[in-house]
Design a protein around this nucleic acid. Structure first.
Length: 229
DNA sequence: ATGAAGATTGCCT
DNA sequence: GGCAATCTTCATG
């Protein structure tokens, strides 16, 4: 069932770990893809140097200053999209949770088609393993920026882990490995990925040992172009 | 107007 | 493990 909007009406640091295990669905003309979230990161907005909202409201980050439960989608590195759910701590805090990785539990064929490059096959665990991969598997791009994710009938929606349609379908199919992952569902926390400022703050949350969690990479600043002597 | 860096990924050695 | 791809955004001149 749809997650109530008030779930997101609190600081992202509190909502983030509670989001693990819930389901993100996107229904398009091509079909439905659903992902069970296994890794997220909290961004505090105005008070967080690592947040896109740290320096105030701009055209790009405007959605984060709006009501909770909406999608903040941004384009980065000239080729990737990432999706956040807007939260609400203090009024205008512009906090959000970055959805970093998950397990595809419905629409695997469609997700695979969207992710496939050339002829190389992609392992199921890698379909949504990383924030840009997750968006690609779900078909999320610029046009989903600002979408309400907790409104009935929304094509892009956040569902609680128990009782959602995709999970029910799995129960019916009897696929035990997907219903009950082999790895323990213990939540652990650590530093956020690829963040240069406030890198010591452990606001990344994930399922310990889950194979769909992205590999950690510390932030590496790119070297400037060599200057001709 | 201009340029540097970026909440990343995939391919190369 | 290193680096290119690729383009938007924001800060600075």
């Amino acid at each position: 069932m749809l997650i109530p909007r008030k779930f997101f009406a609190r600081p992202s640091v509190e909502a983030a770990p509670d989001l693990l295990g819930s389901v993100l669905e996107h229904e398009t003309a091509d079909g439905l893809v659903a992902v069970e979230l296994t890794e997220v990161e909290a961004y505090a907005g105005r008070s967080d140097p690592a947040s896109h909202a740290y320096r105030g409201k701009t055209a790009r980050n405007a959605v984060m200053f709006g009501p909770p439960g909406h999608a903040y989608v941004y384009f980065t590195y000239g080729m990737h999209f990432c999706v956040n759910v807007v939260c609400l701590g203090e009024e205008g805090s512009a906090s959000a949770v970055l959805l970093r990785a998950g397990r595809v539990i419905a629409g695997e064929e469609l997700a695979c088609a969207r992710r496939t490059r050339g002829t190389t096959a992609i392992a199921p665990r890698d379909l949504a393993r990383g924030p840009a991969r997750l968006c690609q598997a779900l078909g999320i791009d610029r046009s989903q920026n600002g979408a309400d994710m907790v409104s009935a009938g929304s094509p892009l929606r956040m569902l609680s882990g128990a009782g959602n349609p995709a999970r029910s379908a799995l129960l019916a199919s009897g696929d035990e490995t997907l219903i009950h992952p082999a790895t323990p569902r213990r939540i652990v926390t650590g530093p956020r990925v690829g963040v240069s400022s406030a890198a010591e703050i452990p606001w990344r949350f994930w399922y310990d040992g889950d194979p769909t969690v992205s590999v950690y990479r510390a932030h590496v600043p790119r070297q400037p172009k060599p200057v001709t002597p």
